[in-house]
Design a protein around this nucleic acid. Sequence first.
RNA 1: ACAGUCGUAGCUUAACUGGAUAGAGCACUUGGCUACGAACCAAGAGGUUGCGGGUUCAAAUCCUGUCGACUGUACCA
Length: 549
Amino acid sequence: MDFKEIIAKLIFTNLQNCMKDESIDNSCELTENDIKDYIEVPKEESNGDYAFPCFRLAKILRQAPNMIADRLKAQISDDVKAGSKQQENEEAKTNSNVQENKDTQRDEEVQTNSNVQENDDTQIKQKNNISMIEKVESVSGYLNFYIDKSQIVKQAIELFDEQKDEYGKMNIGQGKKVLVEYSSPNIAKPFHIGHLKTTIIGNSLYKIYKNCGFETLSLNHLGDYGTQFAKLIEGYKRWGKDYDLTENPIDKLSEIYKRINELCEQDENVLEECRETFKKLEDGDEYCVKLWNEFKELSLKEFQKIYELLNVKFDSYNGEAFYSDKMQEVIDILEKNGKLIESQGARVVDLEDKGIKTPCIIQKANGSSIYATRDLAAILYRARTYDYDKCIYVVGEEQNLHFKQIFEVAKYLDLDEKYTNGLEHVSYGMIMLPEGKMSTRKGNFVKVEDLLNESIAKAEEIMQDRNLDNKAVVSKQVGIGAVIFEDLKESRIKNQVFDLNEALNFNGETGPYVQYMAVRTKSVLEKALNNKDSANQSKCNKKRYRRYK
RNA sequence: ACAGUCGUAGCUUAACUGGAUAGAGCACUUGGCUACGAACCAAGAGGUUGCGGGUUCAAAUCCUGUCGACUGUACCA
C-alpha cells in the first residue's frame, strides 16, 4: 500500500479547498504528483512516519509555512476522524451481516457525483487506508503524519501469509527483456575479490529484474581472448614443462602469466611476439587453439566451484572468443557508413564530436582485433538473438571510457534506437588491498575461494557450542551470506580497501545479523500463532523452555 | 596537462535527490542471559560534512574556486 499516495491525495484536495477560500487562482502547476514527491520520511521517529514540508506552498498561498501547516492539519484531521468512524461502521456492518441500507453518511464528504455504486469497493478500501493514519501534527512548517503501526503489521503479515514466496514481487517489467552481463573473469587467471564485486552486484541486479517481472538473462562474457591470452601461450611455450597442471592449474598458470609479464616488461620484443601469437590464435593456428581449449576448460572448472558456492548460474558463457568470427560485419557496417578512418596504421572511429577525445580502435595496425570490436560484435549479436530492451554491463570503473566509446560507436551500426538506448554500464569502484592495488601480474590478490571457505569455517566455529542439527548447511548459508552482504553494503562507486576482518565480522550491521533477526522473528511469530491456537499449549512451551534453559 | 569519480565521527558509511537536532555499524566506556533465540539488547562518548566563496526561507546535497585520493587518456582487457 502506498501511503504517500494517500497522503498526497488528502493534502491535494484540502489544498484546493484552501485556495478556493482565498480565491487564489488554482491553475498553478502544482499537481498531486508533485505533492507526492515532496512527501518525505522524517529522520527523527518522533516526527512521524511521513512528513510534508509546507515551505513551498508559502509563495502560492501567500502565508507563512507554519500557518499553512496548522490549517491543513485541522482540515485533514477531520478527514481522518471521518475515515475511522467510517471504518467502524464498515466493520460493524460486516460483522452483523447487514448488507443493504447503505450508510449515507459515508458519501457525504466523499466526492459527490455519480458512480458511487461502481466505486464502492475502492472507496471503502481508501477510507480504510485513511483510518490507518493515527494522527496529523503541525510542527514548525511541517505536516507530520503518524501511521497506526499495528495495522500495518497486521496487513503485512496477512499479505505475506497469502502470497508466501510471491511476496514483494512486481510485474512492472512484463514483456520486457533485460540482459545482465557480469562476473566475466579472465581465463587462466585466479578468481579474486575484484571479480567478486561484479559477480555479486550483477547477480543481485539479475534477481531484482527477475522479481520485477522482466525476462532476464545472465551473461558471463568470459575474458578468453586477446593479447593477454597470447602471453600465456608464449609463457607456456617457454616454461610449460616446469609446471604440472593436473593440480591447482590456475595457480600454476598465473605463475606463468606473472613470469611472461616480467619478461615483456624487460624486453619489448617479447611483447611484440605475444601480439603476433594472438594474431596466430585468431587465424586458427592449431597449437594455439589447442592450448586455448585446454586452458579454458581448466579455468571453467575452477570458476564453477565458486559459482556453486555463491549459487550463481549463467544462461550464457559466450566469451570474447565467441565473437571473433562476428567482427567482420562490424567493420563492414562502419566502413559503409564512412565512420572508419585510418590513424597511425590502425583503423579507428573518431568520437571528438561526441566529446570523447580518444578515438575508438576497431582494427589494430597488424590487422588483429581488439576488445572494442568484440564488444560491438556482441551488441549486434545480442540485439538480433535476444531482442533485448536493456543490456547492462557490470564492469569496473576503469573501463568507463571504453563503454562510453562503444556505446557511441554502436549508434553507427544501423541498429534500432531501442538497442542503443538500452545499453548501460553499471560501474563500481576498485577493490584494493591494505598494501595497495591488486595485480594478477604481480601476484598480490585474495582468492574468492579462500575467502568464502574462511568465512564458512568461521561460522562453523561460532556454531560449535550451539544446539543445531544442520550445522553444515547453516554455516555455509551464514558464511557466504556474510561475504555477499558485506560486498553489497559498501558504496558501489567508491573505492574499497578490502579488510578481511571486516568481511568476516558477524556482529552489527552484517549479513549474519539480518539472517539472525529473520530467524528470531520467525520463531516469535510461530510461538505467537501457537499461543493463539491454544493458550494452554503456550504455557507448556514456556515450562519446557525454562527447563531446557 | 586534460577528462571522470570520490572526499561526512578514529575506521566503514546513511541521509529518500534541497528540508526538522547530519542517522547507523565497527572500535571504545557502562549495564544486562533462571520467562520472546546474547550472532542480541539498553545507555554513553565521538561531527566546522576537505577548505573558501555564491544561490536559497532552507545546502552534506546545487554553482564556482581550491586542495587531496583514485581511475582513464590508442593498438591490454
